[in-house]
């Protein structure tokens, strides 16, 4: 079962921050069984910036959701930050998400009735912090994404690029180790996309965050330290620099 992972980076060193072995997710829809993710082996080391590419329906979002702990594997093993996600309780999983994961969506997914400030504050409410500490952290996060002057703006008063930057601030405000991003630039114009990518790159380079990002855009993928290709739920080798083995 301990097949060599698709990259050899983590061998011998620290445990990779994300470690999949035989990771499988199936859905049963009526009589059909859909398997968006099949027997996936993957290691991601701390501080890596992974770009996940592949055609629509190839299982990219499914993989992100599993890593982010908002979905559970059907079989196989998935260790993130040393926690085996396949067999933790829902409440432990929620705590895991709060501590380890910042999720950035394609469509930002800000809460419409909350201001930028309040949206960023949301994940912090779960932490034991004084009101003042919370305020400081939110202000810092908004400052980092360049929106220090937009605290009181509601999502509808912001541009797409600004919304996405608020979403990034919300994802990093708790200082999680892993950022997962599902086509974060998919809905943005060129300039906004570039700003978001610069921000993500800064997060790995300066703060050592591990990022797993789904993208269709080769330009965005170029920011990553490693590009993975999914097809029909399996990783395929396209980038010779890193891949040593193709599954099936």
């Amino acid at each position: 079962m301990t097949q060599a992972p698709i990259n050899g980076q983590a061998e011998g060193g620290l445990e990779p921050i994300i470690r999949c072995r035989g990771l499988t997710r199936t859905y049963i829809k009526g009589d059909n069984t859909i398997t968006p993710l099949a027997e996936l082996d993957l290691d991601v080391a701390r501080g890596e910036f992974i770009a996940l590419m592949g055609p629509s329906g190839s299982g990219k979002t499914t993989l992100l959701n599993l890593v982010a702990g908002i979905d559970k594997p059907t079989s196989g093993s998935l260790r993130v930050g040393g926690v085996e996600l396949a067999d933790v309780s829902p409440s432990r999983l929620a705590a895991f998400r709060s501590e380890y994961i910042g999720y950035v969506f394609q469509l930002y997914n800000l809460v419409p009735v909350l201001t930028a400030y309040e949206n960023v504050e949301l994940p912090l409410l779960l932490h034991r912090l004084s009101g003042r500490e919370r305020h400081q952290r939110v202000a810092t996060a908004l400052q980092l994404v360049g929106l220090a002057d937009r605290h009181d703006h509601f999502p509808r008063q912001l541009s797409g690029g600004q919304e996405q930057r608020v979403a990034i601030a919300r994802a990093i405000v708790t200082d999680p180790r892993i950022i997962v991003a599902d086509e974060p630039t998919g809905d943005l114009d060129k300039e906004s996309a570039a700003a978001v990518m610069a921000l993500l790159e800064q997060l790995t380079a300066e703060m050592g965050k591990t990022i797993v990002m789904v993208t269709h855009d080769p330009k965005s993928a170029a920011h990553a330290s490693r590009v993975l290709h999914l097809e029909k739920g399996r990783l395929v080798v396209q980038d010779e620099r890193f891949a040593t083995l193709a599954g099936a």
Binding site: A68, S91, R97, I101, Y103, V111, L122, P123, L126
Partner: peptide, 15 residues
């Protein structure tokens, strides 16, 4: 529904 899914993604538990 989506908003609550967002909260849960941020780590809000079911309870």
């Amino acid at each position: 529904i989506k908003e609550h899914a967002i909260l849960q993604t941020l780590g809000y538990g079911r309870g």
